[in-house]
């Protein structure tokens, strides 16, 4: 195939891939899922703010600074800025957390979505940079997701902004580009984590999940019995690798998409139940469901509704 013919055949497909107008509904699902999970997280951590964020907490500011990014302010900067106003450290942290929660509620409802997303993203970035010692996977994905809520048209579906006429829920090229970005980002995530696991001997020999589940902080149950059935450990370990490495390749074709969404959600459900990482698993499930699962569900619902509407007519004409 010549370069010219390749360009003429692939070019339009690529253009359609990123610009053929599509519904913003997956982005609305993404926004609602992320905001709901972050509200649950905020509620679950609300009583531990002094220990997690305070200078006299478990990790003083002078220590946590070692892992912080110099490009992003931290809570100590916010507290220092509020001090001249007579606001104490505890009140400053609580105030910041309160504004964050209000912004998340706005994001959840799709009320002044962009503004809510910007406020939630900025505060989350500051908080994340302040709790580097306490953070784990869920924070990483929350951070990425909130940035996407800022730049993507996530308020164009299932939102009060649409109901109030401030935003249109019509299919748009921007919704398509945003969805593609989210989808490609997820493929990069699963592929890189899968490939990095493949570098580890415990993943290759199939014993990684034994090492994970036998750790007291992860194992929600006594998994010592797994030693009697090592094939089950190997199957689960290699199954995890297959789902993660295969994600980037199998989630695109229509024939395997539903299966891979189900396998990925199932894997995260397993992580939640067996390791107790409910928020992390919830976040990953929201991302995959919004990016790849919702279009399938929406399509199935439309087909079912159409069938329900048309069936009586077909039935009567058949009679």
């Amino acid at each position: 195939m010549s370069a010219q013919s390749w360009k003429s055949s692939v070019g339009p497909k690529l253009a359609a891939f990123v610009s053929a107008p599509s519904s913003p509904q997956p982005l609305g699902v993404f926004r609602i899922g992320v905001a709901a999970l972050l509200l649950i997280q905020a509620w679950s951590l609300s009583e531990s703010l002094p220990e997690l964020l305070g200078n006299r907490g478990w990790v003083p500011w002078s220590v946590s600074e070692a892992l912080a990014s110099p490009s992003v302010p931290r809570v100590d900067a916010v507290v220092a800025a509020l001090a001249p106003l007579g606001i104490s450290q505890a009140a400053g942290i609580q105030g910041l957390a309160f504004v964050y929660v209000v912004a998340l509620v706005g994001l959840l409802l799709g009320l002044h979505t962009r503004l809510s997303a910007v406020v939630a993203w900025v505060i989350h970035t500051v908080l994340l940079n302040s709790i580097s010692f306490f953070s784990y996977g869920v924070e990483t994905f929350a951070h990425i997701s909130l940035f996407y809520c800022v730049v993507m048209p996530v308020g164009a579906a299932f939102s009060l902004d649409v109901r109030a006429g401030r935003l249109s829920e019509a299919p748009s090229p921007l919704a398509t580009l945003s969805l593609r970005m989210l989808q490609l980002h997820l493929c990069l995530i699963y592929l890189s984590t899968g490939l990095e696991k493949l570098l580890g001997p415990v993943w290759r020999d199939g014993t990684a999940l034994w090492e994970v589940l036998m750790q007291p902080q992860y194992g929600q149950f006594d998994f010592a019995w797994l030693a009697v059935v090592p094939w089950m450990v190997k199957l689960s370990t290699w199954g995890t690798l297959a789902v993660e490495v295969g994600y980037a390749f199998c989630v695109w074709p229509r024939r395997t998409r539903g299966l891979w969404v189900a396998l990925t959600v199932g894997m995260h459900l397993g992580i939640a139940v067996m390791m107790g990482l409910w928020l992390f698993s919830g976040m990953m499930t929201v991302l995959t469901f919004a990016a790849f699962g919702w279009p399938l569900v929406a399509e199935a619902m439309v087909t079912r509704v159409r069938a329900a509407v048309l069936l009586p007519f077909h039935s009567s004409s058949a009679r």
């Binding site: 490009s71 992003v72 996977g137 990483t140 995530i189 984590t193 990095e196 580890g200 993943w203």
Partner: peptide, 18 residues
Amino acid sequence: HWTGASSGFSFFAPGVSP
């Protein structure tokens, strides 16, 4: 750092920390 684009995803990889 602001966008999270520098994030790594080495969950239990390549090995499982004790």
